[in-house]
Write a protein that binds this DNA or RNA. Structure first.
Lengths: 183, 183
DNA sequence: GGGAGCATGTAACGGGTTACATGATTGG
DNA sequence: CCAATCATGTAACCCGTTACATGCTCCC
């Protein structure tokens, strides 16, 4: 009776891809990659193109997704994937199970702050300011995506995740500003 | 004249280990691992034990560190590493160069928030609350380490990095609380 | 006509993890 | 005496990236 026992052992990225398909749309590897860049990338990861395809193969081997080939035009086709009932059951079980994975943060800028006695502090400040500029942009992008998602009822939870990302980026900007006062 | 050209091409974790040795203490692989857990782990990563040893080998092959064997007791020895002048030069060049690596965040809880329509929201909330408890603990630990580091002048920058981590964890806790109101 | 975007896939590589293996020392 | 900690290392494995390879379609 324990759902956990039936959870197939997949890497996290598989769950991310299966999660995308759990929104019940028929999507190609290409679609999945682009969508991941606009949502998952903010709090999880943007998988490489080649990985999306290999994860789809893996999921299909496990019977969690099914595919068909669509003949877009005479000499062109694309493979479209849908989640199966097994896939939906796996997602449910995965959601119910304890979270065993750790939150991973790898912050190359903080590594340099930590080791700042090896270099010039003004150089480091310039690096941080450039980082800050990128964050401002990402923050605006996250807000845009969040607003977009909020307009679609089925995307309630993606919208919450994107608002979280917006907040996380705002917090990160504040902390960069704080860092600049400390250096 | 461009320092960047002379930077050996090493994975980030190598720089983390070399960075530890840049504080001019003679340390064993075991020491390095433990210290990483207490500082680097908060904003970068806790490398596995086996990796520390292999990174040290790599660094020694590049001439960035040097080692000697200390005979602790008759039948027991440990290998102690120090940074070389070349290693110090490499660290300086690395600090001056543009930061090309991306900040990596992999948040398994947010992935589940994003895909929350697949499961029970109450389950998810419970997972988040457990996560919150862990964060409270980590927050206290970070503060302790930061206070400890602040007492040592040579650890000025590690102390700043740890204070940053303390703030990052406080922000993360606030965002979890916000998430719980939204679900 | 040409460049941007659509679209899919393979192969090589490597960073990093887990598991295995071993054994001494220290403190309760 | 026994468990925890100190201490080092190897081997297998795999996730994920980069680079390579190919070719169509749409729009300016």
């Amino acid at each position: 009776m324990q759902a956990e026992d039936q959870i197939p052992d997949l890497p996290m990225t598989s769950w991310a891809v299966l999660g995308e398909l759990s929104f019940d749309e028929e999507l190609s590897g290409y679609d999945l990659k682009r969508w991941a860049e606009q949502s998952l990338a903010f709090f999880y990861w943007a998988p490489s193109q080649s990985q999306v395809y290999s994860e789809l193969k893996r999921l299909e081997q496990h019977g969690l997704v099914a595919s068909r080939v669509e003949q877009t035009h005479e000499a062109k086709s694309r493979r479209l994937y849908v989640i199966t009932d097994e896939g939906r059951a796996a997602m449910r079980a995965w959601m119910a199970a304890e979270v065993t994975e750790q939150v991973v943060l790898k912050h190359p800028y903080l590594l340099r702050v930590w080791a700042a006695h090896n270099g010039n502090v003004e150089d480091l400040k310039r690096h941080l300011e450039r980082h800050r500029e990128g964050l401002i942009e990402r923050h605006a992008t996250a807000r845009g995506h969040a607003e977009h998602a909020e307009a679609v009822p089925a995307w309630k939870y993606p919208a919450i995740a994107l608002r979280w990302s917006e907040r996380a980026l705002a917090d990160e900007i504040d902390r960069i500003d704080w860092l600049l006062t400390q250096l």
